[in-house]
Design a protein around this nucleic acid. Structure first.
Length: 430
RNA sequence: UCCGGUGUAGCUCAGUCGGUUAGAGCAGUGGACUGUUAAUCCACGUGUCGUAGGUUCGAGUCCUACCACCGGAGCCA
């Protein structure tokens, strides 16, 4: 007996197959029944006819409950009345385990209830579609970088201290000293880039901020390319080309999933590089003209970002921020010492910052001054300063938050649905 | 951490001005139906009204504190 998967069911048209999965839903109309079988790869309708299966088997069919695990044997047949165009004319089935009282019914539920049942919620159509798109985004990201000779180099999660000082870190006991969970792999990424030319690190990062917004998780995934012999402008080009590639790959390969989410794809089809560039100075002017009470030197809040992004139908690159609000490792603008060569990419449709990047300071003395000025523990940064001691070169990089990209491309109201098991303020389980 | 909101059946919610017996839809169970698409129709059940105090003849309803959750701010990807 051939075992088929729903996503490949076309290849078995007219053949007798076995399908293994779970009962998504079942309906009956007297002596004929319809069993929606979910196998993880898709959902297919199995037609169950009393006269074909016999009295006893049909009674078994009537006992089936939501999410009961089951093996179905039947013939694949094209039928326009079936969702997906194919159905199974059931000949036999075996109950593997009868599910009892599955909590997620086909009707409405609140987010908190569903999050408490996240391990089961993942089985529903919408969550399945999101996870498939998330995977496509990650795959496209890696394919893009791999095809341009980047090497994936992992960076540590246990670290001795903060890379950017300001953010709150999760501390943990580490054989008698305190270790912190990484909030970024970037500094290690710079070291890796000096070894590999082009590298990216891709892993979970942790921020202990007590943020309660639709954009924040305490554990999230970030990809951070780092490129040697790369200036600020080229860095922006890498970032915009990567975003363009990711969106195109999702549009080409995940149409069904976008349709499940009822995502309007017209705005995504406009995502082509180059993206508009607007300086921080221009943003300040834009905000002030728009009636915002904003002074030069401050950082943008969420409403500010949204206002700026609304002017464009593509992601917008905001560049050259005041150095005082940016991290110590960012290179100063040679044309204006008050500015740092940092950039953020703001997604359209109100999704805010998805990428943050910069050209890095490559001069030893300048970097040392900043470490001292920011009161960073110099001994822990000696290895980082080594990168400027032994063959320092111009280099740049950026970090992209996966969950924010998933939220944007799927047009979800909150990042908590973009990751299988979200970790946020007040959410550690399941 | 701050501001605002919500908490009533397994789920989603209604509950008037404080009034005597707590309400609906869905889910579930039983039945009818040979093409259903979250099927339809008939029948059946369920309550620590978030927790603890207080006001009152009487509290789901008013007051206080606490807890949980939701939204927003700050911070960030």
């Amino acid at each position: 007996m051939q075992i088929a998967r729903v996503n490949r069911i076309k290849e078995f048209d007219g053949q007798k197959v076995q399908l293994n999965g779970w009962v998504y839903n079942s309906r009956r109309s007297g002596k004929i029944g319809f069993l929606m079988l979910r196998d993880g790869f898709g959902i297919i309708q199995c037609v169950v006819v009393k006269n074909d299966l016999g009295e006893e088997k049909f009674e078994d069919f009537k006992r089936l409950t939501q999410e009961t695990s089951i093996s179905v044997i039947g013939t694949v047949a094209k039928n326009d009345r079936a969702p997906g165009g194919f159905e199974i004319q059931t000949e036999d089935f075996t109950i593997i385990q009868l599910s009892d009282g599955y909590p997620i019914t086909p009707k409405e539920h609140g987010t908190d209830f569903l999050m408490n049942k996240r391990h089961l919620w993942l089985r529903s159509k919408r969550q399945h579609a999101i996870l498939r798109i998330r995977h496509q985004i990650i795959k496209a990201t890696r394919d893009f970088l791999d095809s341009h000779d980047f090497t994936l180099v992992d960076t540590p999660i246990f670290t001795p201290n903060a890379c950017e000082g300001t953010t709150t870190l999760f501390g943990t006991e580490y054989f008698g000293e305190t270790a912190y969970l990484a909030q970024s792999g970037q500094l290690y990424g710079e070291a890796n880039a000096m070894a590999m030319g082009r590298q990216y690190n891709f892993g979970p990062t942790f921020r202990a901020e007590k943020s309660k917004t639709r954009r924040h998780l305490t554990e999230f995934w970030m990809v951070e390319p780092e490129i040697t012999f790369c200036d600020f402008e080229e860095n922006m080009q890498w970032a915009e080309r990567m975003v363009e590639y990711i969106v195109r790959q999702v549009l080409e390969n995940r149409q069904n999933e976008l349709a499940v989410l009822e995502r309007d794809i017209a705005p995504l089809e406009k995502i082509k590089a180059p993206f508009p560039r607007v300086s921080y100075d221009e943003c300040v002017e834009m905000l002030q003209k728009g009636g915002f009470d904003f002074e030069w030197g401050g950082d943008f809040g969420a409403p500010d970002e949204t206002f700026i992004a609304e002017h464009y139908d593509k992601p917008v690159i905001v560049h050259r921020f005041p150095s005082q609000i940016k991290a110590f490792y960012m290179k100063r603008d040679p044309e204006n010492d008050k500015l740092a060569l940092g950039m953020d990419i703001l997604a359209p449709e109100g999704y805010g910052e998805i990428i943050g990047g910069a050209e890095r300071e490559s001069d030893y003395n300048t970097l040392l001054e900043r470490v001292e000025k920011e009161n960073l523990p110099k001994e822990d940064f000696e290895w980082y300063l080594d990168l400027r001691r032994y063959g320092s070169v111009q280099h740049s990089g950026f970090g992209m938050g996966i969950e924010r990209v998933v939220a944007w491309i799927c047009k979800l109201p909150h990042v908590r649905e973009t990751i299988p098991y979200p970790r946020m303020l007040g959410r550690l389980r399941p």
